[in-house]
Design a protein around this nucleic acid. Structure first.
Length: 450
DNA sequence: TCTGGGGTCCTAGGACCC
DNA sequence: TCTGGGGTCCTAGGACCC
């Protein structure tokens, strides 16, 4: 393999790159000088690298992080979720002077006797044996498996481990796209070693590096694109690697249920089944036009491509948030009139939290919205757009209040949410404000001149 | 005793402007 | 007086994902 040493990139770091990599990452002057030579070189002696995209998915992430702290729970039925304060306090009290790993199993809170509206976020395999699983109500789970240990969700801990494993990946392969707390896409195409055994060698290196640093395992799929990589990462869970090439489409992808395609959810799947389509292979046999007739231009065309393993989406390194929101389900259903004071207090607190989130993350938004969920679980949203961006809690509260007035309030409510959308970075907004007063007179002068 | 919280993207209709 | 498209913004709902 030919390696060019480009000495230093614009962050002052030293790297070795394969030639075609240079055009992307070298300082412009260097790239300009070597580009013609590279083009000749590539066209004569270097075959284009295969596009190799990896999807990495942490195995039972929340439960695994909890087991690092409480190894004595390994193999036992554990569910994580709820968030009733009682569990936190029980556990804190139970800890006392002991380190977490020394707390006897008998002292952990059980599902039995749980009351409240929480749902399961994660269940260990031992717990799943009893038929409990993600999104199930905790009270229902308590009936199925009363002896299961119930741990409160600890997002601070999960975020910490999330940051750790993502940093490790980034040091090995710099092109990483975040997909929530426990998943990433990685572009292997230009990474040294990324082509070896179709990506298996690099996947193994990343897996081992994460395990050595954290004790956590993950599963990796490497394929020509994100769509196939995402499916592949599920093939050999847990702690597995799966390599998929274009030629594997018919043997490895087509036998799978349509629901395995990321983007086909319960509704689309049901509709497909009604049309007699169950597998991706069957989906692939359909006519594009026919799919468009049933699912619309965009979805139909997308489904057709997906079934044929086609997906050109790039790995996206950074993206700006579109909206920031807070919502809460009440302990008991509340009525807009009879529980006005309680509801008002919650409403104000949600607005303050959103305002705080905006400030902390450095954004301002100009669309203020609310979400209501009624006791029959039906939801409505109302929103309005302000003339200017804001992160001010009182402004958000006032306008969210106007939204609330436009919603039906006869029925009792189970959830209230507040959202701020149409976000722009605070810095951008402030720069705009400084320019604002200057621009108006200039505009006028120009208008007069023309 | 049903069903959390934080997001993104798409659709579709209406307003409004050119 | 009637009749156009196209583009953008706004709003409400819904599917989907982690």
């Amino acid at each position: 393999m030919v390696v060019f040493d480009l000495a230093h990139d614009n962050r002052g770091q030293s790297h070795h790159f394969m030639p075609h990599y240079a055009a992307w990452f070298a300082p412009t002057q260097v790239a300009a000088k070597i580009a013609p030579a590279l083009t000749t070189f590539m066209s004569t002696s270097q075959p284009a690298p295969l596009r190799r995209i990896a999807h990495l998915d942490m195995d039972a992430f929340y439960a695994s992080v909890e087991l690092l702290r409480y190894p004595q729970l390994k193999g036992l039925p554990v569910v994580i979720g709820g968030g009733r304060r009682r569990q936190d306090e029980d556990l804190t009290a139970a800890q006392g002077e002991r380190t977490p790993d020394k707390i006897p199993v008998a002292e952990f809170p059980r599902l039995q006797g749980y009351s409240g509206r929480g749902v399961i976020t994660t269940a260990t395999y031992a717990a799943r044996q009893f038929g409990v699983g993600s999104a199930m109500g905790l009270m229902k789970a308590a009936k199925l498996c009363p002896d299961a240990i119930l741990l409160p969700v600890d997002f601070a801990a999960y975020r910490h481990y999330s940051h750790t494993f993502k940093t490790i990946i980034q040091e090995i392969a710099p092109l990483v796209e975040n997909r929530g707390i426990d998943e990433v896409y990685i572009d292997f195409t230009q990474v040294p070693g990324g082509q070896r055994e179709g990506g298996r060698v690099l996947a193994r290196l990343i897996q081992k590096s994460i395990f050595d640093a954290t004790g956590l395992t993950c599963s990796v799929g490497v394929a020509p694109n994100k769509l196939l990589a995402k499916m592949a990462s599920e093939f050999n869970k847990p702690n597995g690697i799966a390599i998929v090439f274009e030629d594997d489409l018919q043997t490895k992808i087509w036998p799978l249920a349509c629901r395995k395609i990321n983007g086909i959810g319960p509704r689309a799947d049901e509709k497909l089944q009604q049309l007699g389509i169950r597998t991706i292979g069957e989906l692939a046999q359909q006519d594009v036009g026919w799919l468009i007739d049933h699912f619309g231009q965009k979805t139909g065309a997308w489904m057709f491509d997906a079934a044929h393993g086609i997906d050109a989406r790039p790995v996206v390194l950074e993206s700006e948030p579109v909206s920031i929101s807070r919502e809460t389900t009440f302990e008991r259903d509340l009525h807009a009139v009879r529980d006005k004071a309680e509801l008002g207090a919650i409403f104000t607190r949600l607005c303050e939290q959103v305002a705080q989130d905006l400030k902390r993350q450095g954004y301002v938004g100009k669309t203020i919205g609310i979400k209501l969920r009624y006791d029959d679980f039906k939801s409505v949203t109302r929103e309005l757009t302000l003339p200017d961006h804001t992160y001010d809690a009182a402004t958000i509260r006032r306008n969210a209040g106007l939204c609330l007035k436009r919603a039906p309030l006869q029925q009792r409510l189970r959830l209230l949410g507040v959202r701020v959308g149409s976000l722009i970075p605070l810095a951008e907004h402030q720069a705009g404000l400084r320019k604002g007063p200057l621009r108006a007179p200039l505009q006028t002068a120009m208008d007069l001149a023309t």
